[in-house]
Design a protein around this nucleic acid. Structure first.
Lengths: 222, 222
DNA sequence: GCACTGTCTAAACCAAAGTATAATCGCCTG
DNA sequence: CAGGCGATTATACTTTGGTTTAGACAGTGC
């Protein structure tokens, strides 16, 4: 039986503490608009970072706390949609709210398909933007929380030796020790030893718990 | 310990055989457009049903096989977006492709947020529609397959007696028999009997398998 | 009343899981 | 080369899990 271990490696570096303050990043090439939006967002008690272009975002570094991007689709250099694609390709997950003065439907469709939270046409009501921002932050908080949990799991999984990983992959399918031993050609007692180690290292209190951890890690036997 | 069983009841009646032929439902009030689209879709070997209005859809009854809706957003009576909301509220899951001659961005955003697959502006290229339809069918097939599996699980779960469900809910948390017995105030051996029954009735070959079934059923102990 | 279902329990086992101790072997590193 | 780690195994036990057989009791429906 050929056994392969598949572990999802979610390249995101955004797994961060939940205690951090939320940050709203506003990107618009028009300084006046930037300032107005920034002021609006600050008026509801949220921390903002106003930028004129996209490269600044990557240079500035990403905040650790819950984040929401407010982007003009038409930006100098790279368009907002290109940037969205780029973030997506780099596996960087941030809720994006697009704004546009002269957008069209295909552009809107592309943005929404790409996972945009909202696509506002200027002029829009302040409250619409603020509502979207709150929704974006809520989603990002949930996402960060999940990401944090998965990262913790992965860290534990990485402390497993190759053999332990192999045994774990089979254990979570529900195969009995005897069968696992036969599958990988070792004795049953050795399987038990590895299995015990896996439970301890993964901090799993029960078999169903371990199975759910494996599922979250996309651990699979093929 | 207060124990509650939560079972998701997915009101959809669309769990059907995978062997059914796909059907594309085209709704447009313009008979010429309807015929042209219908002909286009049939030209690639797909079965179509052309309708002039939305109520017809519900009267006609829904096809059992993979389905994709092609809707003009502006329809006589109820708008396409209203209809989308209605389907969603009724928990009827069908991929929807919208078409429009005079749409705007807010309308597009609403449709996409509502889960629309595509939002095409007339005139569009035939191939764009056909591509979207194929994508819609693929998604619907996957959805139907999953729905079918969950329905089968639910059917088995419903053969369980109240006590068996209670025991199952605790078993899948990983609690040992002795604790479960204490939790619900019966003897350990009775728990074992119920547990065995649960495994047989649910056709679960192992504990992790049973746990995954419970997860799919949204079975929870609170 | 009678059959039936659901629930509960016990005795008697057998199989599987889990733990502790101890020992062997290969490999790599300081 | 000594020490550590990973992997392997054995012995010896304890604890759980799981099945079978058999009996008891309450409530439902015919």
């Amino acid at each position: 039986m050929p056994i392969t271990l598949l572990v999802a490696v979610p390249l995101s570096q955004r797994a961060a503490a939940m205690t951090e303050q939320p940050t709203i990043i506003i990107v618009d090439d028009d300084a006046e608009v930037r300032e107005a939006l920034s002021s609006l967002v600050r008026s509801v008690g949220l921390q903002t970072k106003a930028l004129a272009s996209v490269p600044e975002f990557l240079n500035e570094g990403r905040p650790d706390g819950p984040t929401c991007l407010v982007l003009d689709v038409r930006l100098p250099g790279q368009s907002g949609l290109d940037f969205q694609r780029e973030l997506s390709a780099a596996n960087i997950h941030v809720p994006i709210i697009f704004m546009t003065g002269h957008g069209d439907i295909p552009m809107t469709v592309q943005a929404m398909k790409g996972g945009a939270l909202e696509f506002l046409t200027k002029p829009f009501r302040d409250q619409d933007l603020l509502d979207s921002i709150q929704l974006g932050l809520a989603r990002d908080r949930a996402w960060l929380e999940n990401e944090k949990a998965v990262a913790a799991l992965r860290a534990r999984f990485e402390t497993l030796t190759p053999r332990e990983r192999e045994v774990m992959a089979l254990v979570v399918t529900g195969r009995p020790n005897k069968q696992i031993a036969h599958d990988i050609g070792i004795s049953e007692i050795t399987v038990k030893v590895h299995r015990g180690q896996v439970m301890r290292k993964m901090k799993a209190s029960s078999l169903p718990t371990l199975a759910r951890m494996a599922d979250k890690l996309n651990l699979a036997v093929q």
